[in-house]
Computed example of a mutant assay.
Amino acid sequence: MNVKKLLFLCALLGAFALAFWLLPPGALSLDSVRAHHQALLAQVQRFPLQSAALYFALYVLVSALSIPGAAILTLLGGALFTLWEATLLVSFASTLGATLAMLVSRYLLRDWVQRRFARQMRTVNEGMDRDGAFYLFALRLMPLFPFFMVNLLAGLTRLSVGRYWWVSQLAMLPATIIFLNAGRELGKLTSLHDILSPGTIIAFTLLGLLPLATRWLFSRFSHTSL
């Protein structure tokens, strides 16, 4: 690892340490946000622009550093802001955070992975060049794949930043709106499992796989016709 990457890694570890100092264990829990809901709501009503900016910055920080708690922050956004305000804040903050996390993975790891696993990555790169947006769309919609893992894996590929941004923002929007709506009933929630039912998870999975399946069927049909 060269000096620049080593310094960047040290800065990243420092950011982790600062984030955990600012967000002690339990700060981003359902019980914690419920307990402070009314006090936070009063602050939002008193300082709406400052509160929105602080919420946006916190969301980007949590997403970029892959700190557990993004789902709780989404619920809190639904409880503190109107639906359209919260949708704008969370959609852009989560996408910005995800893109920063992907760029960190790309800067620190991609060159080494591409060299170390050149033969395997050649196949991956060809697939991502051809169907990368469809794979990313599917992974983003499937709740089974952790948010941080998708960012990490995408950083190892040659998927362009622009495509990564718009596909992520589009694919994460349905779950964002569901969580924001759930946040409007924050006091009634007992766990995150109350939000995504098995039926919803299956529906998201099928929706994510639909573009890939359609592309595969089209390719197969075209090949057969020729």
Rank of each mutant, 00 (worst) to 15 (best):
D31L: 05
G14C: 05
A35P: 04
A64T: 06
L9T: 15
Y59D: 11
T82E: 03
L65D: 09
K4T: 13
A52Q: 11
M149G: 05
L89S: 06
S63A: 15
L217D: 07
V44P: 00
Y164W: 10
S63R: 14
T200L: 13
L30C: 06
Q38D: 14
A42S: 13
F20C: 00
T200K: 02
I67S: 09
M142C: 14
H37C: 09
L139V: 00
T190A: 08
M121C: 11
F137M: 11
R34P: 11
Y135H: 12
G187N: 13
Q43C: 05
V33N: 03
F117A: 13
W216R: 13
S105E: 00
F218E: 09
P24N: 05
G78H: 08
E85I: 03
R110C: 10
S63E: 14
A11W: 00
D31N: 14
A171K: 02
K5D: 07
V104L: 12
R115E: 14
G208E: 02
A70G: 15
G78R: 09
R130K: 14
A79P: 01
R122G: 09
G162E: 01
E126G: 15
L75R: 04
V167F: 02
V167H: 02
L141R: 02
A42R: 15
M128W: 11
T99A: 09
L156K: 14
L206H: 03
M102V: 04
L108A: 13
A203V: 06
A98Q: 06
R116G: 02
T200R: 04
A64N: 04
A52E: 00
A171I: 01
G132N: 09
T205L: 07
V3M: 08
W166K: 04
S197G: 06
F204E: 02
R115A: 09
L217K: 06
R163A: 00
A213H: 00
W166L: 12
L209M: 10
A213L: 14
S222R: 13
F148T: 02
E85M: 02
V104C: 12
S191K: 10
V104T: 13
V124T: 07
R110G: 01
L100W: 08
S219E: 13
L170F: 04
S222H: 13
S197H: 11
P68K: 07
A35M: 15
V44R: 11
S219V: 15
A101W: 06
P24W: 01
F16Q: 07
L65Q: 06
T157E: 01
S160V: 01
L30Y: 09
F148R: 03
P48A: 13
H223W: 07
G183K: 07
F137D: 03
R158C: 03
Q38A: 14
R163Q: 08
S191I: 04
F92V: 12
K188S: 15
A175D: 01
N181T: 07
L18N: 05
Q50A: 14
L89P: 08
L89G: 10
Q120E: 05
I202Y: 03
L170A: 12
W84Q: 07
T224M: 06
S225M: 08
N181H: 12
T224D: 08
T157G: 03
A35S: 15
M142S: 15
S32M: 03
A154W: 05
R215C: 04
T157A: 04
S160G: 11
